[in-house]
Write a protein that binds this DNA or RNA. Structure first.
Length: 692
DNA sequence: CTGACGATGATACAGACG
DNA sequence: CGTCTGTATCATCGTCAG
């Protein structure tokens, strides 16, 4: 369990360095991270126990791997670089069912072979930090002298245990059972199970109020407490107290998200006066770090032959294995796990094209209810889709280019658990070529512009000056322009999706033309106080209706009486429009959208189309916490479909400044999709939340 | 609102190599 | 002839300063 504590140590290390003049302030987080994790795990004292420690140390796979042959387990660990002899011994001691414990023990044995050195200076060092000499000597003996980080961590742990012993002996803390599934995966958003935290942080205090606020926003109290500690009190021993208390209640999955050493700086910078915004940013950063960790190549998973749900629960465990193996293998097989884009990009199939796939096996954990549908740009930075897929129950993304549905390309990836047989397209078919879409342009279209499809419709359009420049360049030449000019003009036309509207005259698309291409009703975004620029922006960020409707079409038979829809990042209501055009009645729609103009557009469409259902709009995705969702679900009996296309600002190649992947400020909202989907699943299935 | 601002990753293709 | 590698070409739900 203690391997999860690698990051507090780094914080201490940094503090110590600062205090003592800082000889190594600029160490490399990435490599240190690996070292810290392994070193710490290696030297974690086996005799140490906490009230919840047993639960954490317990099998990550209890009961699920019992029928695996002994040799398979041994082979697995041998493959990680341990000697067969050692593995066999440990498996005999610990039992083959408890893979986590085996790994722990193996790492401990490995540590016992570390070289020793003179220790008096070391002891002085830690005594100088304020620990008692007795404790330091004991810990150094336990850990060996070669591993100062482990020593420090153990010291902190012991200190924490001493100061929290009375609290932890509380017999009412039912969550501290030794059953892994029962305690570790418990619902840590359950307020009642956090009496200890409340004792430490009185709700009447400022910290308490912030904590309550954060938990009301949908974060687990445990998560909020961590952040409060890190940002608010910044008192190390006290921090460890809280941390230890929480460990028994947090999934490893969760622990992984907050252990990232890169997050220290954030804590230190924020200081004691953190605002709620800073704290939520911090939690989000933790969630991002979780994603970053998930980017590590995933090797064969001999223990995950059960459901993917279980796989997801054990990511913390997987992470350790991965990092360990990574060091052994020097990550040469990076591409093995990468998501590859299909060519042609038709996903499981598009209308009027061969190679339709009508059958697929979804991971058990991905099955509904509810159905979910997540969308984002296909050409995201490397590893992003792997991460998205893993966070969404390992469902394989479906990559589709909307050029197979309309006259404009739109390469998008969709992760969903919808059935894929008996899909049908919206009729009549929309225009499929530029000429069909804009017949009036044919007259002016030069023969050397061979485009039949427009490129991806973006949020910006070409400037008037550019079209003028093109006109002048063409007017300089009689008849067929020279190849150089042709090349320049074509390049600009492709880049900005220009169409020919007169002799030598190109122009960007009008907003209503973009609406038509994307499958929206004409003037969908018009009026209501929205500017032209905003129309382009909203449309550029939207679904292509025909593409999405094709995927949604399978729902028509399943929900003849109508559908309850949760639409996250709904924008101008692409999902709602698609369902409506399919003839699927909208019963209750909860739309979450940050931009007021977009909410107005959706509301306006809702009224214009005489919808009989109810539309609830919510501004901020953070408002949608467990309480709110529970209330909504109680009101109309659950969601049938959860749709979301989270912002792609940080993923798209057009962004030259902040193409930060899922770590980006906006793209990280993907994790809110996961959070909410998970909450919906948990509430609807009557179980407690696993991930907040 | 305008006009400035590259980078990343996918794809296609030619040529080397066995 | 298939595979690998280097090169060229292309597309991209955008951001920032003024």
């Amino acid at each position: 369990m203690l391997r999860s504590f690698s990051w507090p140590i780094l914080q201490v290390k940094k503090m110590v360095d600062n205090n003592s003049g800082g000889e190594a302030d600029n160490f490399d987080w990435d490599t240190e991270d690996d070292l810290e994790i392994d070193n710490y795990a290696i030297s974690a004292p086996s005799g140490l126990s906490t009230p919840c420690g047993e639960a954490v140390l317990g099998s990550a796979e209890a009961g699920s791997s019992g029928n695996s042959p002994n040799s398979k387990i041994i082979d697995h660990f041998v493959g990680m670089g341990f000697s067969r002899e050692m593995v066999a011994k440990v498996v005999e001691e610990k039992g083959e069912e408890n893979s986590d414990l085996i790994l722990e023990a193996l790492l401990e044995y490995s540590a016992s072979t570390l070289p020793s050195s003179s220790n008096s200076k070391l002891i002085d060092h830690f005594v100088g930090m304020g620990f008692s000499e007795e404790m330091v000597v004991k810990v150094v003996q336990e850990n060996g002298e070669g591993n100062t980080d482990s020593i420090l961590e153990t010291l902190l742990t012991y200190s924490a245990l001493e100061t929290t012993a009375s609290v932890q002996q509380n017999p009412d803390s039912g969550n501290c059972s030794s059953d892994y599934e029962g305690s570790l995966l418990n619902d840590f958003s359950d307020f009642d199970s956090f009496s200890e935290s409340e004792e430490i942080m009185s709700p009447s205090s400022e910290e308490g109020r912030k904590l309550l606020h954060l938990t009301k926003m949908g974060y687990s109290e445990a998560e909020a407490s961590v952040v409060m500690e890190r940002c608010g009190l910044c008192y190390l021993i006290h921090f460890c107290n809280i941390f230890l208390l929480m460990v028994g209640r947090m999934s490893k999955f969760h622990l992984d998200s907050i252990k990232d050493p890169r997050l220290f700086n954030c804590c230190i910078e924020n200081g004691p006066d953190s605002t709620i915004e800073e704290l939520t940013d911090f939690i989000r950063a933790a969630q991002i770090a979780k994603a970053a960790d998930a980017l590590f190549p995933l090797e064969d998973k001999p223990f995950s032959n059960g459901s993917s749900h279980k796989k997801r629960r054990n990511w913390g465990y997987d992470l350790l294995l991965r990092k360990k193996k990574l060091k052994l293998e020097k990550r040469f097989d990076e591409d093995d796990d990468a998501v590859h884009l299909p060519n042609p990009m038709i996903g499981f199939g598009v209308p009027n094209e061969p190679d339709q796939i009508t059958n697929r096996v979804l991971p058990e954990a991905a099955l509904g209810p509810p159905y979910f549908y997540y969308e984002n740009v296909a050409l995201a930075p490397k590893g992003v889709w792997t991460t998205i897929s893993r966070f969404l129950y390992d469902v394989e993304p479906e990559f589709v280019d909307s050029k197979f549905f309309c006259a404009a390309a739109r390469k998008r990836g969709y992760v969903h658990n919808l059935p894929i047989d008996n899909r049908f397209p919206l009729l009549p078919f929309p225009p499929r070529t530029i000429h069909e879409a804009f017949p009036l342009t044919r007259k002016w279209w030069p023969s050397w512009d061979t485009r039949t499809k427009l490129n991806c419709l973006q949020t910006c359009i070409a400037s008037a000056r550019l079209t003028d420049k093109i006109r002048k360049a063409l007017e300089d030449s009689d008849g067929e322009p020279p190849l150089g000019i042709q090349k320049f003009v074509l390049e600009q036309c492709r880049k900005w999706n220009l169409v020919w509207v007169g002799r030598n005259k190109v122009a960007p698309l009008e907003p209503d033309e973009v609406e038509m291409l994307l499958g929206f009703p004409r003037n969908h975004t018009r009026g209501g106080g929205i500017s032209r620029t905003d129309r382009y922006k909203s449309l550029g960020n939207s679904f292509q209706i025909d593409t999405v409707a094709y995927h949604f079409s399978v729902l028509k038979d399943k929900f003849p009486g109508g559908i309850n829809l949760l639409s996250l990042f709904s924008g101008i209501g692409g999902a709602e429009v698609a369902l409506h055009q399919l003839g699927i009645p909208l019963k209750n729609v909860v739309a979450v959208e940050i931009a007021e103009v977009n909410r107005n557009i959706l509301r306006s469409w809702w009224e214009q189309t005489n919808q009989r259902g109810t539309l609830t709009d919510i501004q901020d995705v953070q408002e949608l916490n467990g309480d709110r969702l529970e209330q909504l679900i109680k009101n109309f009996g659950g969601f049938d479909l959860v749709v979301g296309g989270s912002p792609c600002n940080n993923l798209t190649g057009s962004n030259r400044y902040h193409r930060d992947g899922l770590e980006g400020k906006d793209s990280a909202l993907f994790f809110d999709f996961c959070r909410i989907l998970d909450l919906v699943k948990c509430i609807m299935n009557g179980t407690k939340s696993m991930i907040v």
